[in-house]
Amino acid sequence: MKYNEQLAERIAEVAEVAGYLWQKGWAERNGGNISYNVTDVVDDAVRALTPLGESIALARPVENLRSHFFLVTGTNRRMRYVSSSPMDNMAIIRISDDGRSYAIVAEKYIHPTSELPSHLSIHDYLIGKGCNQKAVIHTHPTELVAMTHNEAFLGKDILSRLLWSMIPETRAFCPKGVGIVPYTLPGSIGLADATIVQLDEYDVVLWEKHGALGVGENVVEPFDMIDTLSKSAQIYMSGCAMGFQPAGMSDTQMQELKDAFNL
């Protein structure tokens, strides 16, 4: 199917980022998922598409997403294949007019990611809050996941402070730091709810022993934030591997950075 230029660009953007996730080693097998609210670029041709199957009930209504369209990666689909053949591994879904179900409308009958309840709950929250963040990425950045296995890092803002201190760019490009969600069953509404609480303060949330989730106005934005945080984690772990714990920037140095760049 041929899509309008703007929707085709969104599809290409997801494919590009999916390739990065695979290249980074953050998307083993079918690990990770992406959703993108594309309602603003959907044209009459897509709106007129006949659903490819029966409507699928949602675990709970998403009233702010009524009649919205989403580009979502498929369950059991590999990011490396999303990158090379995006619409063989993603679907466009339409939320029902009452927000209680969704239907797959394009391109093939590819069932969305098992994390769809979390994604839609987060999108519903973002729109309800008046945010312009349309993209949600969940991925498995190795070093960041490893750090969530250390209980000492799981207190509020402890990991943010450590990661900010490793390199100035992290403080500049991830000024909100990271939220932490204690281990919760993947794909559950409980995980979605706990993540939403953290999104009141942060744009990136770490799921203990599981992965990272980021939100942004486009798909590249959350990828860049997670990538930057991952670099800080790598610097910290590289220092530890060399036999010392990196000192990090001091509070004074980080305050100077914050003041200089109005963070």
Rank of each mutant, 00 (worst) to 15 (best):
116 L>V: 04
174 C>Y: 10
34 I>S: 07
163 L>T: 10
43 D>C: 04
1 M>V: 12
149 H>T: 15
45 A>E: 05
135 A>S: 11
62 V>P: 00
43 D>G: 02
219 V>R: 07
96 S>N: 01
12 A>S: 15
17 V>K: 09
213 L>G: 01
202 Y>I: 08
110 I>T: 05
90 M>L: 13
262 N>M: 15
180 I>A: 00
27 A>D: 02
218 N>Y: 10
60 R>W: 09
55 S>H: 08
165 S>C: 05
233 A>H: 06
218 N>F: 09
244 F>M: 14
70 F>M: 01
179 G>Y: 04
206 L>P: 04
113 T>Y: 00
189 I>A: 10
188 S>W: 05
206 L>G: 01
38 V>T: 08
3 Y>M: 09
85 S>R: 14
86 P>S: 09
41 V>T: 08
101 S>G: 01
27 A>S: 06
69 F>M: 04
181 V>E: 02
48 A>R: 02
136 V>H: 05
186 P>W: 07
133 Q>K: 15
181 V>T: 02
45 A>L: 03
37 N>K: 08
112 P>L: 04
60 R>F: 07
164 W>G: 05
13 E>A: 12
56 I>K: 07
7 L>Q: 08
68 H>S: 08
45 A>S: 10
97 D>W: 01
102 Y>F: 06
1 M>G: 13
185 L>E: 14
205 V>H: 01
263 L>I: 12
120 L>D: 00
118 S>N: 11
18 A>M: 04
19 G>C: 03
233 A>P: 03
231 K>C: 12
202 Y>G: 02
106 A>W: 01
123 H>I: 08
258 K>M: 13
177 G>E: 06
212 A>L: 09
258 K>P: 08
226 I>R: 04
133 Q>H: 13
89 N>F: 01
141 P>H: 07
199 L>P: 05
165 S>E: 05
65 L>A: 03
39 T>R: 01
197 V>R: 14
47 R>W: 00
130 G>I: 04
218 N>S: 13
49 L>G: 02
113 T>A: 00
187 G>C: 06
160 S>K: 04
56 I>P: 00
71 L>Q: 08
28 E>A: 15
169 E>C: 05
215 V>E: 09
160 S>I: 02
5 E>N: 14
105 V>A: 01
220 V>K: 14
32 G>E: 02
194 A>N: 10
10 R>L: 10
221 E>A: 13
41 V>N: 07
238 S>M: 15
19 G>L: 04
88 D>H: 12
111 H>P: 07
237 M>S: 14
104 I>K: 03
247 A>W: 10
50 T>F: 04
232 S>L: 07
110 I>L: 08
31 G>H: 09
262 N>R: 14
153 F>H: 15
259 D>N: 14
256 E>L: 14
168 P>D: 03
158 I>S: 11
55 S>Y: 09
42 V>R: 00
251 D>R: 13
139 T>I: 10
108 K>S: 11
7 L>P: 04
214 G>M: 03
71 L>D: 00
204 V>C: 03
225 M>P: 05
116 L>G: 00
224 D>I: 13
127 I>L: 14
